[in-house]
Design a protein around this nucleic acid. Structure first.
Lengths: 347, 347
DNA sequence: ACTTAGCACTCGTGGTCATCGAGTGCTAAC
DNA sequence: GTTAGCACTCGATGACCACGAGTGCTAAGT
């Protein structure tokens, strides 16, 4: 375990390094007004901290920098997160509410604003709309054997997908089917559509239709979410280029894999999807991230809710040398603000 | 006017510089097998070309590089664009056709592939779907005074927008209105919807409904395209990070404004929208571009068509030192391929 | 009159070298 | 346990120089 003094030194060092991005020496620390011990003592402590794995030395005659373990300890025990300006969020809330006509816009705006406020890149995993309940379902045939199925939810959200009408299903039957579906499925949450289709509709259909097979094929296409590998959740990015402000990414070679990643939406979804349900703030430092591309980065995430149910998450991506306190504070405020706005929108 | 020999020298120099990204000296040119004049002579010619504004010298004792005027002359008179491998496109066409279920996917794929093929960034201005004809229109009320209007076109494309039901319009009337709209507007191309609304529907409506004002307000919301500042056309980007492969963008400072621009969709639309209708290939070199951010870049664009009507364009963005020949060749092939695929999809 | 060989000159690149200074580890004294 | 002192390390900085690619100019050749 660390002594109190070691903790203080570690905290000061991390704080300083986060600010300056340069290795911190013993003298720098001892010169701080609240420090009354000599550089030599601090050197000894730092040597111990290094041996324990909390610090690293870029080269022999430089100061120390925090290791990833050091950051972890800092985030868990040393950092003070209540270091923020509450009025910011007030302003921004009104900014967000100005154009509340579309959930999508609110979420996109959130990404931009969070990025602007933190000076890092923001990644927002869009809300699962699957909790919406089905309000109406329609089928509009076009062309030869094609049709679009249109699902409207009780919040005015529209989903549509193209389906092909299986051989043997007469066009006349379709109106009948749509009727049946509307009777049976209205009010069912989208994510339960598929199972409801089998429990509610299948029997009825078997009884009164001779095209059971064809109809079920058609229906299945309709309720199947479009599989773009993202499970239906969209990703919203804000300030992808802000990562370039960080000295650790001045080099194009370091930068490229990261920016490349921003184009691979599924990867980003994978990165965030675990964090939606676990609630609260999560901090993943360096190698704690599953994705290798960001082993030199930290990802701070917060989930947001609609009606108290977690539906998505906001993430901030920056170098491991990140202003954790400020970021966590900002995310805390924003996840609640966003939750409130979305809940209201959902009414 | 340039002499033949000056043209040859300019061509060789541009070719060489495009390949190597390094200033080209007189010796380099004279050593080429098809060159039988001495470096000294070439130096004289180069001095003349510089005076005429076709070449520049980075510093006194370096070789010459083409000026933007030089590139312009090269593109207009010297370059040979038939420098490509036709089988590439064949392969890719089948690749595109594999997932032809959605226009959007085809266009997005095109952006990626063109970028991969040229090693620059591809920007595709999505097709105006306004040429599609209306197949059906529906209104689904939800919540208090809200509704979604759903427009389906004859190609299975779905547009939807949220509308608020004006005061004084009774919910019962809506079904009636929808009927009327479907009677009058089916078969009308989307871009003519608004005018058709006034010519076809307004009179009829005035005659048989006492809520003329309210209904017209409602209808207008429905046919108004969503205004996100892009005029309804979407932007598809491919290989935004490939620009980093170019030595002129190895510096983060140069890079940032460019990548920032990629996030500003309206700017990109503005950049491309002029090029849709003018047909053929267009090359904008450096300052010829309206947008200041890309004054150090060149933009090559080609429009593509559906049923012979220009609906969008493909652009390739790279440094002014761009492989114009290859890019133009690729775009030529792709604009026709894309036109064919989209036309077929549109049937 | 055009071409070219020759030459002095320019200027960026890359290497060596010494200096500087921030920082360390260690020892010995407090 | 703390700290002053000191030798040592090592990257950064800048001066210096040699190199070489390339130029412009002049003068000679065709």
């Amino acid at each position: 375990m660390l002594t109190d003094r070691q903790k203080v030194i570690l905290q000061i060092l991390v704080d300083d390094y986060i600010r300056s991005a340069e290795p911190v020496g013993s003298r720098t620390i001892s010169k701080r007004p609240d420090m009354s011990i000599s550089p030599a003592t601090i050197r000894n402590e730092m040597a111990d901290l290094e041996e324990l794995g909390y610090l690293e030395q870029p080269h022999t005659s430089a100061g120390r920098i925090p290791s990833q373990k050091g950051y972890r300890f800092y985030v868990d025990h040393l950092m003070n997160a209540d270091n923020g300006e509450a009025q910011d969020v007030q302003n921004l809330r009104s900014g967000l509410l100005n154009r509340l006509d579309e959930m999508e816009q609110v979420v996109q705006q959130t990404a931009s604003i969070v990025s602007g406020l933190t000076n890092y890149t923001a990644i927002v995993l869009g809300p699962k709309v699957f909790t919406d309940k089905l309000l109406s379902i329609q089928i509009q045939p076009y062309g030869d054997r094609m049709a679009v199925a249109i699902l409207v939810t009780d919040t005015g959200h529209v989903e549509h997908r193209k389906v092909t009408i299986p051989e043997g299903v007469p066009p006349e039957a379709i109106a009948h089917y749509v009727n049946l579906l509307n009777q049976k499925l209205v009010g069912v949450p989208l994510h339960k559509l598929k199972s409801a289709l089998h429990t509610e509709v299948a029997d009825e259909l078997r009884r009164c239709s001779e095209q059971f097979e064809g109809a079920m094929m058609l229906f299945n296409q309709m309720v199947e979410p479009e599989d773009d590998g993202t499970g239906g959740q969209r990703i919203y990015l804000g300030g992808t280029t802000r990562i370039m402000n960080q000295p650790e990414f001045r080099d194009v070679e370091k930068l490229k894999p990261l920016l490349d990643m921003f184009e691979q939406t599924q990867k980003l979804v994978r990165m965030l999807e675990g964090t939606t349900s676990s609630g609260g703030i999560q901090v993943r430092i360096g190698h704690e991230n599953l994705i290798e591309t960001i082993h030199e980065c930290s990802l701070v995430t917060a989930s947001y809710t609609i009606d108290g149910i977690p539906v998505g998450s906001i993430g901030v991506l920056g170098p491991t040398r990140m202003e954790y306190g400020r970021v966590i504070h900002t995310l805390n405020q924003f996840s609640t603000t966003l939750s409130q706005i979305l809940t209201q929108l959902n009414k």
